[in-house]
Measured scan of single mutants.
Amino acid sequence: EVTIKANLIFANGSTQTAEFKGTFEKATSEAYAYADTLKKDNGEYTVDVADKGYTLNIKFAG
């Protein structure tokens, strides 16, 4: 089991951190699915992958 950390960075400057656990593939998939649910209210997003994929910096356009 691994932990994927998602740093969520919103257009208004606020930030939030979420963690997803499971296999690497499952946790990564859940992180992207979570970002997709936030897209409606926060706009499109870009992802900067860090720490060999264990950290995702997800920035929303607003």
Rank of each mutant, 00 (worst) to 15 (best):
E1S: 07
E1G: 08
E1W: 05
V2D: 06
V2K: 05
V2M: 07
I4G: 00
K5A: 09
K5H: 13
A6G: 04
A6L: 11
N7S: 06
N7H: 14
N7Q: 09
L8F: 15
L8P: 00
L8S: 02
I9T: 10
I9D: 06
F10V: 03
A11F: 11
A11Q: 15
N12D: 13
G13L: 13
G13T: 08
S14R: 15
T15F: 13
T15Q: 14
Q16F: 11
A18P: 04
A18S: 15
A18I: 15
E19I: 12
F20N: 01
K21R: 11
K21F: 15
G22M: 02
T23D: 13
T23R: 03
F24A: 07
E25P: 07
K26W: 14
K26H: 15
A27P: 01
A27R: 00
A27C: 04
A27Y: 00
T28F: 09
S29D: 13
E30C: 06
E30R: 06
E30D: 14
A33T: 09
A33V: 07
A33I: 12
Y34L: 10
Y34A: 04
A35V: 15
D36L: 04
T37G: 11
T37E: 11
L38M: 13
L38R: 05
L38E: 03
K39M: 11
K39W: 05
K39H: 04
K40S: 06
K40M: 12
K40I: 12
D41G: 10
D41T: 11
D41I: 12
G43C: 03
E44W: 08
E44A: 08
E44N: 15
Y45Q: 01
Y45R: 01
T46M: 12
V47N: 02
D48F: 12
D48W: 08
D48Y: 09
A50L: 14
A50Q: 14
D51Q: 05
D51A: 05
D51Y: 03
K52M: 11
G53M: 03
G53C: 03
G53Q: 03
G53I: 02
G53T: 02
Y54V: 05
Y54S: 05
L56K: 01
L56F: 04
L56P: 00
L56C: 01
N57V: 09
N57C: 05
I58L: 06
I58S: 00
I58K: 00
K59H: 14
F60M: 02
F60S: 00
A61P: 12
A61T: 15
A61V: 10
A61R: 09
A61N: 14
G62F: 07
G62E: 09
